[in-house]
């Protein structure tokens, strides 16, 4: 399992629990699940786009379809690419953990 450290830059394992030391008073976490036909989609590529549509980060969903970003309060778009199809959702988030469900379907 990967650990999140200041000297790394790769996307961490999305099945891992929130790293110890993450202060939810300060962090804005966008966490959720990619689903298709009601079931989770593992191995989906989920990217976080800022309010201008610019790429910010990308992770691969866990076996349970989970993903997680550390952002800032505001409006963001999460977009998923997967073999089950693509999809996106706009989210407005606050500090703390913000849950989002992201549905994908064939184009």
């Amino acid at each position: 399992m990967s650990t999140v450290t200041a000297d790394s830059c790769a996307a961490p394992d999305q099945a891992a629990p929130l790293p110890a030391g993450v202060d939810l008073e300060k962090e804005t976490v966008i966490a959720g699940t990619v689903v298709a036909d009601g079931g989770p989609v593992s191995g989906a590529y989920v990217r976080l786009l800022d309010a201008t549509g610019e790429f910010t980060a990308e992770v691969v969903t866990s076996g349970e379809g989970a993903f997680r970003f550390f952002a800032a309060p505001g409006t963001w778009t999460v977009r998923a690419l997967s073999r089950a199809g693509n999809g996106d959702a706009e989210v407005s988030v606050e500090r703390g953990v913000n849950q989002v469900e992201l549905a994908v379907a064939p184009d």
């Binding site: 790293p19 300060k26 800022d50 970003f69």
Partner: peptide, 21 residues
């Protein structure tokens, strides 16, 4: 880096915790 890192609004890419030195 992403525009938010450039501007100083974020300190790391958004898949990582933001508290950095």
């Amino acid at each position: 880096r992403s525009p938010d890192e450039y501007a100083g609004r974020l300190l790391a890419p958004a898949h990582l915790p933001q508290e950095q030195s």
